[in-house]
């Protein structure tokens, strides 16, 4: 049809907008994908191993097998995301050709390029990237990311790093809205981020794309915590399928993300879920995924 434009930034960011207030769940099989959809997930992340297992197994973590991604695409009607290694634009090309709805250029996989992230403007499929601070978020947006998520520390079931990252990003945005126009130059320099994006934050008070939370969410309370801190939606990786009873926990996390300011509902949905994933303390891990990316 003449005049139609696909793959524009507005179209890419549009899908991120539609996921707001929702839960994106990591799944490794079509069965898990169906369970996630049944629970009310707004999207699934198709991958071969959840971060907790990637962490345990070690070695090089890469894009998932296309066959496995196809299987998950066929199993659900909600959007399907998949991960490419940082900088690995060929993995991203493959994911785009498979018709995945969103590509996560993810630090959970082993980085493929030590200096460059993917030029995300070169793609029609939207990208989400992780960030630990505002400068990193703005650099990813300047490369074409349509969604930013906190990196947190994937596979730990420990929310502390995601909280640090959200507070970094949102706290600096708050400060920028108080800065005068001359101070914005200094902010751009300090953040190593493009000035026009810093100026945009000064004007709007927020990133030009949605900001989601990822990395360490294991309970309904964690999800609501992230939302109250200012995240606009949450990713849950290992937290669901590494728990005792995934189905009720998945549903409870969906409810908690919607009713995130309602402690009565949070108390109700947190009851009787069985044991969450065990989780690990930050002093017990030897590889920090959040340090990957530049």
């Amino acid at each position: 049809m003449t005049g139609d434009a696909s793959g524009t930034f507005r179209v890419k960011r549009g899908l991120a907008e539609m996921m707001k207030g929702g839960v994106i769940m990591d799944v490794v099989t079509p069965g898990q994908a169906r369970l996630a959809e049944d629970a009310g997930a707004c999207a699934v992340m198709a991958l071969e191993r959840v971060p907790a297992d990637i962490r345990r197994d070690g070695g090089v973590a890469r894009m998932s097998d296309p066959e496995m991604i196809e299987g998950i695409k066929a199993a659900v009607s909600i959007p399907v995301m998949a991960k490419a290694r940082i900088g690995h634009f060929v993995e991203a090309q493959i994911l785009q050709s498979l018709g995945v709805d969103f590509v996560d250029e993810s630090e959970v996989l082993t980085p493929a390029d030590e200096a460059h992230h993917i030029d995300k403007f070169a793609f029609d499929v939207p990208f989400v990237c992780g960030a630990t601070n505002l400068g990193e978020a703005l650099r990813r947006i300047s490369e074409g990311a349509a969604m930013i998520r906190s990196k947190g520390e994937a596979g730990t079931g420990n929310i502390v790093e995601a909280v640090r990252h959200l507070r970094n990003i949102i706290g600096d945005m708050r400060k920028i809205t108080q800065a005068d126009s001359a101070e914005l130059f200094e902010w751009a320099k300090r953040l190593q981020a493009p000035l026009p994006l810093v100026q945009e934050i000064a004007e709007t008070g927020w990133l030009p794309v949605p900001l989601f939370c990822a990395g360490g969410i294991a309970t309904p309370a964690d999800a609501a915590f992230a939302m109250q801190l200012g995240a606009e939606a949450v990713f849950v990786g290992s937290g669901i399928f590494k728990s005792d009873d995934p189905a009720p926990r998945a549903k409870a996390i969906v409810e908690a993300t919607t009713h995130f300011r309602n402690p009565e509902i949070l108390a109700k949905v947190s009851r009787g879920l069985g044991a969450p994933m065990t989780g690990i303390g930050m002093d017990e891990i030897n590889q920090r995924y959040a340090e990957r990316g530049w």
């Binding site: 049809m1 005049g3 139609d4 434009a5 696909s6 793959g7 524009t8 507005r10 179209v11 549009g14 899908l15 959007p79 785009q96 018709g99 709805d101 969103f102 029609d124 499929v125 939207p126």
Partner: peptide, 9 residues
């Protein structure tokens, strides 16, 4: 899918 999303006047 998303790849078929578009804008038009």
């Amino acid at each position: 899918r998303q790849i078929d999303s578009f804008e038009a006047d």
